[in-house]
């Protein structure tokens, strides 16, 4: 195993959103705008990085029998910390993401990486894995958010791209639009990127 493979896995081969379909709740719920997608992605990455680091450091201390409660305590700590810091320093984002910040605890991506990677690999590898998976998750959320925001509000990152004359298709920033956009983007991801990887 080397750093390059771990990075590639996180971004493409095992992309948490388009391949593994992990953490669908935030993926579908907060991607109404690119900004929210980015905020959720970064918050998740911060938690993932923290939990991967600490769990890989503690892996010899944690007995196998109680590993899940231990992982959850570590993850919940980082989530609560992230929430407090966002509330204090990024209030707009905190309000926009709302209930989905505490819900990062139950994002199966994070527990999944703790269980399958951080508890079995060295700390440097685990840090890179946390970054790679977090980046893969963030990029997917930003793309999804950008597509939905573009069609649903005519803008990307709040920047009005399509002009005021564009009639916004409000369905795209509502729940049905999340499913439509995710389905179509997954199809494109599979066709374009996986085809390239095979050849």
């Amino acid at each position: 195993m080397n750093f390059a493979t771990i990075l590639k896995n996180g971004f493409v081969k095992e992309n948490p959103v388009f391949i593994q379909f992990l953490g669908m709740c935030p993926v579908l719920a907060v991607t109404g705008t690119a900004t929210n997608g980015l905020g959720m992605g970064l918050a998740t990455t911060a938690v993932l990085l923290g939990s991967n680091t600490v769990i890989s450091l503690l892996k010899s201390l944690i007995p196998n029998k109680i590993r899940i409660p231990c992982f959850i305590v570590v993850i919940a700590t980082f989530v609560t910390m992230t929430g407090m810091i966002m509330n204090a320093y990024f209030p707009v984002l905190f309000d926009a993401l709302g209930i989905f910040i505490p819900l990062i605890v139950v994002n199966c991506l994070i527990l999944g990486r703790a269980e399958t990677f951080a508890s079995k690999n060295s700390t440097p590898f685990s840090i890179v894995d946390g970054l790679a998976m977090g980046a893969g998750f963030t990029v997917a959320l930003v793309v999804l958010g950008a597509v939905r925001e573009l069609f649903g509000s005519g803008s990307v990152f709040g920047l009005n791209l399509l002009g005021d004359a564009y009639p916004s298709a409000a369905i795209m920033i509502q729940p049905p639009g999340a499913f439509l956009a995710l389905g179509i983007l997954t199809a494109i991801f599979n066709v374009v990127i996986l085809k390239k990887m095979k050849s």
Partner: peptide
Amino acid sequence: LGLILLLITAVAGLVLGIVNSMTADIIEER
């Protein structure tokens, strides 16, 4: 096992307490 879990939760609680005391005032002011 109980002691290990206690240790981990105690450290977690301590860390959260510190972060809370750092951010609580800012949040209230806001």
